Simulated scan of single mutants.
Amino acid sequence: MVKLAAVVYGPDDDCDALLADFAHRLAAGGVAVAGLVQINGINASCETQDMELEDLDTGRRINICQDLGSGSVGACRLDPTGLAAAAGALRAAIDKPLDLVVINKFGRMEADGGGLAGEIGQVVAAEQPLVIGVPQRFLEAWNAFAGGLDVKVACQRSAVDAWWQSVEASAPAA
C-alpha cells in the first residue's frame, strides 16, 4: 500500500471538487482529515477570478489571489501572502494526530521548489497518508519531486476511494 497518492488531472477534470468532496465525506464519517482544498470550480484561475483554499482543519477560507490593479500587465495574481497563510495553516494542522492529509495541488510554485513543497515533504517524511492533485502539465516535475514514492490515481471518485480503502486496510488496529 502506498500512502502517497497523486490524482493526475487534465484541463477538463474537476479535481478541486473531487478532492473537496472526498475530504468532506471522510471527515463527516469520523476520519481525521486536514489539509487544503480549493473551493471554486474547474475553470478557476487567478487570471479570471479569486481562488480560495479551505483549511480543512478549521474551515477557514484563505484567498490566494491578489488584485494587481487596472494597469497591470501580469497574468498571475497568485498572492504570496495568501499562500504563506495557507502554508502556515497546513503546518499547524499536520502537527496534530491525523488519518489523512489532502492538498489541492502540486502547481507551478511547487514545481519550482516553492509554495507548499516543504509542507508536502513534511507530510511524506512523517509517513502520513497524503492525496494531492497533480495537473498533467506538472507531472514531470511531480515525478522528480516524489521520486517514485507515489501511486498515480485517476481523477475519479472510485479511484480515490479505492486508494483510501487500501490505506485503511493496511492501517494498524487502534
Rank of each mutant, 00 (worst) to 15 (best):
V153G: 01
C155H: 13
D21L: 04
V167K: 05
N63G: 02
H24A: 13
S45W: 02
G29E: 15
S158V: 13
E127P: 00
I132D: 10
G41C: 13
V101N: 02
S70H: 14
A5C: 08
D21F: 09
D55A: 01
G59T: 05
A85E: 12
G41Q: 10
S166W: 00
A5R: 01
V101W: 03
N104E: 11
A5D: 09
N43R: 10
L36K: 07
I39V: 15
D67L: 04
V37W: 04
W164A: 00
A141P: 00
T81F: 04
A75V: 13
L149Y: 08
I39A: 13
P80S: 11
G71L: 09
R61C: 06
D50N: 09
L116F: 04
D16T: 14
H24N: 15
P97T: 14
P129H: 01
D13M: 13
A34I: 06
L36H: 09
I62Y: 01
R61I: 04
D55V: 02
P129T: 03
D50K: 02
T81H: 12
K96A: 12
L139K: 06
A87H: 06
A126D: 04
A144C: 10
D99N: 09
V2D: 15
G10A: 06
D150T: 08
K96F: 03
L116C: 01
